[in-house]
Nucleic acid binder design. Structure first.
Lengths: 210, 210, 210, 210
DNA sequence: TTTTAAGCGAGACGGTACGTCGTGTCTTGTT
DNA sequence: AACAAGACACGACGTACCGTCTCGCTTAAAA
């Protein structure tokens, strides 16, 4: 639904239909998988193109044929959906009533998952990659798009049910929640488990219908 | 509570008596200035110890004598006050009444300042540096300490004045605002400047006394 | 005695009947021409199979279908007669009398032609290719065969005419002349053009009947 | 006496006296030694900068700090005297009488030594390196300078003793001998042991006083 | 005619060396 | 001691070339 533009790995490929040997389609996935696994295991800085290629069972040049640099590869991996970022769809809250509780549940789940070491590695890599890829935040925006969409759906449901006042800026609230969660992961703020609950309370209160 | 020990540049050096040649005190500032300038201009990953030393008019080893690594240097630069982070002291709102408007004003000011390209570069660097430094959030805490202190003062004043309901988690609100502001700097394409204003409204509403 | 089997481009192919599409006969020549041109222009190490194929208007694989490697291709090019090595047939001295003057003329002509930059490039390539090809001198032997044959004919005529003493090792003299000429191409700075003339005098003197 | 210009490894070093940490003087020799050893053992194409650095107990970058490329390193090694090329000073013929026999002896010795596998590797590398270093044959000239000097000394002695006629071009004769010997090595002409003897005879005869 | 074997252009692939760059440490001579 | 200068070990980067392989298409002889 978000319809993230799927740039995929095929940039730099001539548009003329398949002349020459076609690229090994499995390699794309193998490389992205290897990138994810190694990133999660070792972090962004310890990531090596050679290690990625080795784990993908592919020559190093095959990686470079598809992606022009490490940061672009990692960026693409993050946008490919190959990486299941925890807070994207943490809980099935479809039937929750009132919907406002679903928002609270989402924040709880996100806070829990974002503490996980592998998620921390991914989010920190996001920061490094975005810094290298000077794309004006599109990477962050795209990366968090599923989470934002999920949250907005919850909030809109709240508006329908009357728990959230019509006219409140739902985007702003969603950004605040995502930002707070991500920055917690980025900076490894001492966990303080009640903090996000309190945030949820404040935001929910601010959105609540009188 | 903030109380992060100010490590400064003099680690590993008995501060009092010196046997040999004393360190060039100006070098510390020159290095921090050079680090800031280059970071703002080129971003964290394009930053080079050699370039910093050159711009500071100093040998590379002179930098390493004071800071053990690039990320620690940048971290220190951020904490040194050398870098004027926009939202640290945005507006003098001491006498504002009601205090709740001061919060709104702070968020507005922060939103405006955080749009600046050099601030974005610094905040992105903060994320990268925090990722490398494994200091359990102390960098983030110290970096945002002035802003947090300022905000908490405003919020407490609001509680006193009755505009903010007693019992609201002020720390959570402050963290949410700071996190959202910083994250917005990372993620926001320049096309949506009104976003933080909307966040301010939601949060202020959530904190407001009934 | 020379009798090096002319391998040509058609190795690994039953020559008579062909079931599938026949090879493009022009491609052989185009490839050899391209190889010569690029070799002369850029030298052996700057030579690239891709560049050869491009210049020949042919796919890279088409080159590899005919020659198994770069050095074998270059070797074959040298033996194909496609390349006009200067000293192969320098002067028509059939009727010269005494024949000893013909030898002198040959050396003079070779000395002159071998100074040409493109000849130098080829002769250097010969050395490089021979180094890679481990063919026990067959390349050298075939490459120089025309020159050797020509020289030996001259020398034998000299013996018949009495100008050259019976019993002199004509093969040795021919090899010495060819080796010296080739080596001069490799080593001689352009500043000493009279050197080979002097060699001619010495050799001719050494071969002369008392 | 030859006074080959010692370009050595120190090109690209600032002329201002030793500022900064001086280069490890032993490394130069270790690198040249390693280059020689590996070249002799494996040949020029199998030579690797990494292998050289490893064998020299040095980082790869340390090699590149001194020499800009593999071919320049090998060229320098060949000119450094580090490499004892067999035919440079094959036999002590100081007291031989007549001196003309010394020339014959030199050729015999050179022919024998040039057959040695390690010498062949070196001379073939010479061809490759000279081809890459497009220096108009200076490398060949310098490389063979000791041999040429040695031969010329022998020939001049022959002139003094009267065995060689005054006025013969000794340089030409020396070049012919060196050229023939080197080309034998380069092209691995089937050894034919009598060939060089015959060459010696022809040349000596050509040089001999009547 | 239909098969079928091969040639051909295009380009991906595994492998390997290249030369560059940055980090953090070490070693000179000078202040 | 600090300092400027710069060498050093280490290791990743991105590029280039080699020789092999696989596509889809074309070409001619064989069935």
């Amino acid at each position: 639904m978000e319809q993230v533009q799927e740039q995929g790995a095929s940039q730099g490929r001539s548009p003329g239909r398949g002349r020459g040997r076609p690229r090994n389609a499995e390699a794309d996935l193998a490389i992205l998988d290897a990138t994810r696994d190694l990133l999660v295991a070792d972090g962004y800085d310890a990531l090596t193109m050679q290690a990625i290629a080795d784990r993908a069972g592919v020559a190093r040049q095959t990686v470079y044929r598809r992606w022009p640099s490490k940061s672009r590869l990692v960026a693409d991996m993050m946008l490919s959906g190959n990486l299941a970022v925890g807070f994207e769809a943490p809980t099935d809250v479809a039937g929750t009533d009132p919907a406002i509780d679903a928002v609270r549940a989402w924040l709880h789940a996100a806070a829990r998952q974002v503490t996980d070491a592998s998620q921390v590695a991914v989010i920190r890599a996001l920061a490094s990659v975005a810094a290298e890829n000077d794309d004006d935040g599109r990477l962050y925006a795209t990366f968090t798009a599923p989470a934002r969409a999920h949250l907005l759906a919850l909030l809109r449901a709240g508006v329908e049910q009357g728990g959230i006042r019509r006219g409140a800026d739902l985007d702003a609230a969603a950004d605040a929640m995502i930002g707070a969660v991500l920055f917690t992961a980025l900076t490894r703020t001492p966990s303080r488990p009640g903090s996000l609950d309190a945030l949820a309370d404040v935001l929910v209160e601010g959105l609540a219908a009188r």
